[in-house]
Structures are given as C-alpha cells and as structure tokens.
Design a protein around this nucleic acid. Structure first.
Length: 610
DNA sequence: GCCGTTTTCGGCCCGACTGTTTTCAGTCG
C-alpha cells in the first residue's frame, strides 16, 4: 500500500539554511527548554512562568508564526508574547536557533529536566546531581543510585536514594497517555482547522477520546470526503505537526508538538458509520458485537455489515453482501440493537441492555442544576466569592455551594471558625444582591489523620452543606486510611465525601482505600459521594461511580473550580458519570433546589445509629 | 518576562509542614 514514507524534521535540517523555517512546535520547544534550564538554575519563578505561558500560547496557534514573522505581523498581539518573546520567535524563525537557549544548554544537559521531575528531586537536587556526580539523565541517575553514590551526597541519604529509585520505577511504568482535557486542548484547534477544508464532508474524533476515557493514548480522526487528497494535504500542512509518521492517500499519521499521535482516515460515505463504530471501540465492545453478528449470519467490519451466503464462514473470499454501514445506528440495527452511546462501549453490559431495550438515558451537562464544590479568594481560589456566584449564575444554575478549605490547609489560607463567620456575613450580603441563585454556606473540611473533622461541631451546624475530603497523610496503610474515612462519614453533619481516593491522574496514586466498604457505608448513612470533575482528578472514577450506583449511593458531580473558567469543567465529570451509566435521577445536583435540599439531608435514622 | 496601569513599576499564589538532615528542598491546594 502506498502509505508514503515517514519523515522527520531534524534540528540539522532546520538550521541548514535551505530547510523550511522553524514551525510552531519547534519554536515552542525552544522556549520550553529555556524555561526548564532556568528552573534548574534557580531563575526567577515569574520569568520561568512567563516562558511557560508563551509556550502554551504558541502550542495552540493554528497560524504558522514563521508566516506572521515573514508578513511582519505583530507577534505581541498574542497573549503572553511580549517584546522579549517576540524577539526570541523572530530569532528562531530567521536564524533557526536561539542564542539564549544555546548558552543555557551549554551549562546543563536538557535530559536533566527529566531528573528534576522525579518525586523527591527538585531543581536544586538535580543541579547537585549534575555538578557532583555528573548525572544528567534518568539512566545515569539510576546507575548512580544503584551503586549508592547518591546516598553518599551531602543533602541526600538512604531514604532519598530509595525514593529516587522507586520514582524511576514508576516513571518507567507511566503509560504515556494524555489527560482527556489536555488532548482536547490540542485536538479542538486541529478539528477546527481541518473543518475549513471545503472538500470535507464529515469529521469526527473516534477512539477513547470519543468514549470520553479519562486519558487517551492517541487520536483517531475519521472523515468522509468526495476527494480525500485535499483533506490529507490540509492535515500535512497543519502548523502544529511535529513529525509525519505516515502519509498515504486515505490515511496519514502525524504527531503534534506535545507528542500526541493523530491518525486521520478518510473513508467512503457508505462505510462511515461502520468505520466510526470500529475505530471508536472499545475492542471488547466490538468483539462482542461481531460475535453477535456471526450468530445472525452476518459479518461486521470497519467497511460495513454484510450478510453472508448460507454456509459461508467468516473472513473468506466471499465477504457477503453489504447491507449497512452509512451510520452507526444502521450497523447496530442489523444485530437488533439500538444505537449505544460511545461512553458505554466497554462491554460492561451495554450490549445486553441495548438488546433488552433498557439502555439508560444518560445524564447530560444540561441536566446539572447546581455546582457543589468551588473555592474563592477566601482560601485558594482566584476569583472572589461574588465573582464565583456571578459565574455560576451565568451557567444557569439554580444553586451553588461555596466550599473554601478549612484551617488544616494553612498554606492555602484555610478558614478557621472566626474567618468562616466573616465569610457568612459576606454570603448574607451576596445572597441579597443575587436572588437569581441560591448560595449555600458550605466548606470543604479536611479529614484529619484520625478521621476527625477540621472544624468545630457548633460551626458545622451553621453550614448548609458539609463536604469532607483528604488532603494530607496520603500514604497511610489501607486499613488505617479506610478507618479514617469511615470515621469521618459517621459524623452526623457530613453530607458529601469529596474526591474520595485523592488521586491525580498520572501524578499521584489514589490513597489505599477500601472503596467498596466506604461506598457501602456512605450508602447506608446517606452520605453522598462526589464525582470530582477536575480533569486531573475525575474522582470517583468511572468504575467506582458505577459501583456507587449499584450500591445505591447518592452521587453528586462538582467542579472543584478554583476560578470562574473552571466552572466549565463540569462536562468532564458528566462524561465520567455517563461512562458509569448514570442517569439524571442518580445525581443529586440535577434536582431542583427544594428537592436537592431534601435529598442531601442525612436521614434521621442513619444519624441515630451512630 | 508579561501585563495593566492610567507611563514606569508592582503583581504575578505562597507559606506551614514533613522528611531528611543537621539547614532545606519538596509538598500540598
């Protein structure tokens, strides 16, 4: 097959003079390297951040900066690009290199940055490892740690050495998958860019992205077009391409600057539905679907559904007669199934449910009537309480809870009883000014190491909503951690257990917790559990949320927004709820305000049993 | 280093806690 050839732009080509000018990916990478080395050198934090902000801007530009430079367009109109950055960009475009970056890299190797990212190692320790052991990469660090050279360094010790080794181990096991939200940040501009191609008819992102998995490995784009060539040409001209791995007539594979691999296939309209089904997966879902087809004398592939001649086996030279494939629903219909929402396609019982006509009416963002976790400038939020209220009102919510941190989180200016009372005064005033939304007095209260709460009981009684969560002592053994959480749930004032496992996807493992025991007890006590919609948390995760539903838990979805813009992350929580098969009736904050207040209250019987 | 102000510079998260080490980097939200 004429899949084309892989090609890679090398730095040598870029600097050879006859090559094309640097593209956005290379420009962003050069500035990121500056930020990395400045960090190791202990440079000014705000200066480092300025470079990182510039990188973020460049990463999502769909216009080539080189063209802007060539046309003399002002670069400083772009956010986070000032005089200095504009100068760097012009230098990179016109000379292919950046003297400032090169001078920084003369002092430390760029692989030292990976060393700095290990847990327990920061800029200072990375620098010391380089200066004293000449360790400049993860591999070199592993070797040094194995012969005990790391522990012998001043400022290091046996435990640090062991932590480094386990950190390297974890780093190696990391999946290389991207957070869904992070992938989205790169995919949405690409989809918008491709959509401007006049020959393009339909375009959809398939794969785990479409199933709304919490992380995605790569991106599968599926398109139909009368003529595939202009669509492929437009993809290959995308300014954010890092490498072209494959460039064929109907299929191309590229990587973007952040390493995300993107596959584009152009298929004929007659098999678009079948191909979308095939490339959306999951594999397990497809396998079961194909088996169901075989039972009915059919064959389903990415090209369509085919009726096999009597006695014909699957996969033979006679592929059967094409009977469907234009739309996904047509293909499902051939095996007697209703169309199944992508989020459910994990072979978790959705095919049986579709066959029985009992697919859930999945929850949607539009069902949400309130947001129940967010922070303001009273603790670590970036917007004032009133700004958050206005933000929630703009989202059309009927109610909201402001949940600043409690005093145990001193570093985020957590509230003690005195400041909480002051906040209540402000809440009273804001309630008067914002009759359009019900503002609940709430708090995200730390569960202390022994399972007690970080707020006095008499203050708890003054809250409309008590949310509890863990922000410390993540490493407790399972038995102790579970007992800690269970003790907190038993407190009769507690309404919601927030981000129950405390995980940060790709960054922090969940706490050792008997999730089933906690969910079961929460269900008995009438304590709701949260699906935290923050893209890096998504906690409860999909399977835990499914378990919560099965156990009869009350469930809420909230954003944990620390600024107005993050109120929009509700959709990621809803995505996970959909993957768990949740309907609006399973989620308390789809209820009207009076119904919600009634539903969130702890049943008296449960409180008495304490 | 950028931004926004109301044009020449201050704000931009940061500061208590932990573990390891013996003075401080890393962590947490």
């Amino acid at each position: 097959m004429p899949w084309g050839r892989a090609c890679r732009r090398s730095a040598a080509e870029a600097t050879s003079g006859k090559a094309e000018p640097l593209d956005n990916v290379e420009i962003a990478r050069a500035l990121a390297e500056v930020a990395d080395v400045l960090e190791i050198q202990g440079g000014d934090l705000y200066r480092i951040r300025a470079y990182r902000n510039a990188v973020r801007t460049i990463e999502i530009q769909t216009r080539p900066l080189a063209r802007m430079v060539a046309e003399g367009a002002p670069l400083t109109v772009l956010p986070a690009i000032g005089k200095e950055m504009a100068g760097h960009i012009r230098e990179l475009v016109t000379t292919g290199t950046l003297a400032f970056r090169d001078s920084l890299l003369a002092e430390v190797p760029r692989t030292l940055v990976e060393v700095m990212r290990l847990p327990g190692v920061g800029p200072k320790k990375a620098r010391k490892l380089w200066d004293e052991l000449h360790v400049g990469s993860i591999d070199e660090l592993e070797a040094a740690a194995r012969d005990g050279r790391v522990a012998a360094l001043a400022g290091f010790g046996e435990k640090t050495q062991a932590k480094i080794l386990s950190g390297i181990e974890e780093d190696r096991q990391r999946t290389g998958r991207f957070l869904l939200a992070e992938a989205e940040r790169f995919v949405e501009p690409l989809v918008g860019y491709l959509s401007e191609c006049p020959q393009l008819e339909r375009l959809e992102v398939a794969g785990s992205y479409r199933r709304r998995c919490e992380t995605v490995g790569d991106i599968d784009l599926l398109a139909t077009a009368r003529d595939a060539a202009p669509v492929m040409a437009r993809l290959l001209a995308y300014p954010q391409i890092d490498q072209v791995l494959m460039a064929g007539d109907t299929r191309s594979t590229i990587t973007l600057g952040n390493g995300l691999q993107v596959d584009l296939r152009v298929v004929p309209p007659d098999c678009y539905g079948a191909a979308l089904l095939y490339f959306t997966g999951s594999k397990e879902h497809n396998v079961k679907l194909r088996r169901r087809a075989v039972e009915r004398g059919l064959r389903i592939s990415e090209y369509g559904a085919f009726r096999l001649a009597d006695g014909a086996g699957g996969g033979g030279e006679d592929g059967g007669v094409w009977i469907a494939g234009r739309e996904e629903a047509d293909v499902y219909a051939t095996v007697g199934l209703a169309w199944i929402p992508p989020e459910l396609r994990e072979d978790h019982g959705e095919i049986e449910a579709a066959a029985a006509g009992s697919l859930p009416r999945l929850i949607e963002v539009g069902d949400m009537r309130g947001d129940l976790q967010m922070h303001s400038t009273w603790s670590d939020g970036r917007n004032t309480l009133e700004e958050m209220v206005a933000g929630c009102a703009a989202h059309g919510y009927e109610y909201m809870a402001i949940t600043d941190h409690s005093k145990a989180l001193a570093m985020v200016n957590g509230l003690d009883a005195r400041r909480l009372k002051l906040q209540w005064l402000e809440i009273d005033a804001i309630r008067a000014r914002h009759p359009e939304i019900h503002l609940l007095r709430a708090m995200e209260i730390d569960i202390l190491a022994d399972g007690t709460l970080d707020l006095e009981d008499e203050m708890l009684a003054g809250l409309d909503l008590v949310m509890v969560s863990i922000h410390s002592r993540f490493e407790l053994p399972a038995e102790q951690q579970t007992a800690r959480v269970l003790r907190a749930l038993e407190h009769p004032q507690v309404n919601i257990l927030a981000h129950p496992t405390g995980r940060k996807i790709n960054r922090r493992k969940p706490i050792a917790l008997d999730v089933e025991a906690v969910l079961a007890r929460a269900a008995e006590l009438g304590v709701a559990v949260e699906i935290n919609a923050s893209p890096a948390r998504l906690d409860l995760k999909d399977t835990h949320a499914m378990l919560a539903r099965e156990l009869g838990c009350r469930i809420v979805i909230s954003t944990d927004a620390h600024r107005i813009a993050e109120l929009g992350t509700m959709r990621y929580g809803v995505d996970q709820a959909r993957r768990a098969g949740l309907e609006p009736r399973h989620v308390l904050n789809t209820l009207s305000y009076p119904e919600f207040l009634h539903a969130i209250a702890r049943p008296a019987a449960a409180a008495r049993r304490r």
